[in-house]
Amino acid sequence: MVLWEDDEEANYISIDNNGTISVKPIDRDKDDISTYVFEIVAYEVPDPIWNTSLTITFFVLDIDNNPPLVRWIMDASFDNVTFPVDDDTEKSTEMRFLENTDGTLNLTIFIRDIDTGENAQFSVELEDLEENEITYTDAFMIVPTAGYRTGQFQITVRNVTYIDYELPGWIDISFNVLTRGVLDSTKEDRILVKITLIDYNDETPEFEETEYSVSINETAKKGEFIIQILATDLDAE
């Protein structure tokens, strides 16, 4: 007679009285276990005290069947400011950023790939939206640009000259954070990042002309219109 030392092993492997072992479906990623150790006991039916045991170890090889996923986003205080992980809707996050500011955005992006070994390697990049006429990724970059299993990533300003409220088209900025598997680039995930620039008083009023010339009749009366001089300020307020 052959049996398991522990009934829990029956969740993964079955064995008959002839000693034939069969493997049941195993989800290595769900259980997060790659090594299984079992003890099998063989004994005489009339007298179980006469028995012998055998330890079997088998290893589950990982296949690249999971994409890297953006799991959550946190701000600098590590408060969760993101979306439900299992939400089927488009994942996105919004923030405001002061114009002409260099540095790192107040976001930390967490990415995870539950595969193992080389299958758990992934790349990270910023991706412009097809509908955008402006290449917003010229102004930003993400670091680092690669990860293994889990990683934290931050977006930083690459070219501060674009972070200008008065620059046409740069008040509302949007792009994706895209992560892909290294071995299989079709396995991917992305999150939409929306940034609204905050205006501050950084512009000087300017006259439309650098010099004005006008002739006035000596008989001009008080309050008579002479000329209109215009000045503009590019700031919002």
Score class of each variant (00 low, 15 high):
Phe153Asn: 02
Glu209Gly: 00
Leu178Ser: 06
Ile226Phe: 03
Ala146Asn: 15
Thr93Trp: 12
Ala139Tyr: 07
Ile191Thr: 12
Val193His: 04
Asp102Gly: 02
Phe59Tyr: 10
Met141Leu: 15
Ser14Trp: 01
Arg28Asn: 06
Ile134Asn: 14
Ile226Gln: 05
Asp235Cys: 06
Thr101Asn: 00
Ile227Cys: 07
Pro25Val: 13
Asp16Phe: 01
Val143Ser: 14
Arg71Gln: 11
Asn51Thr: 04
Val124Lys: 05
Tyr212Pro: 05
Ala76Thr: 09
Glu118Trp: 01
Glu188Arg: 01
Arg71Tyr: 05
Tyr162His: 12
Asp199Leu: 00
Asp7Lys: 12
Glu206Trp: 02
Ile49Arg: 03
Ile111Pro: 00
Arg112Lys: 14
Thr196Ala: 06
Pro48Trp: 07
Ile13Leu: 10
Asp88Lys: 13
Gln154Gly: 14
Val214Ile: 14
Thr219Ser: 14
Ile15Trp: 04
Thr20Val: 12
Thr145Gly: 14
Glu125Leu: 07
Phe207Gly: 04
Leu105Asp: 07
Asn201Tyr: 04
Thr108Ala: 04
Phe97Cys: 10
Asp102Lys: 01
Lys187Glu: 01
Ser123His: 07
Asp29Tyr: 10
Tyr212Ile: 08
Ser53His: 08
Ile134Gln: 12
Tyr165Gly: 00
Tyr212Phe: 13
Gln228Thr: 15
Leu167Pro: 00
Thr204Ile: 10
Asp88Asn: 13
Glu99Gln: 09
Asn176Pro: 01
Leu105Ala: 08
Ser92Ala: 09
Asp86Asn: 11
Phe225Leu: 15
Pro68Arg: 12
Val124Met: 07
Lys221Gly: 14
Val81Glu: 06
Arg190Glu: 02
Leu105Glu: 02
Tyr36Met: 08
Ile226Asp: 06
Arg180Tyr: 05
Leu98Ser: 06
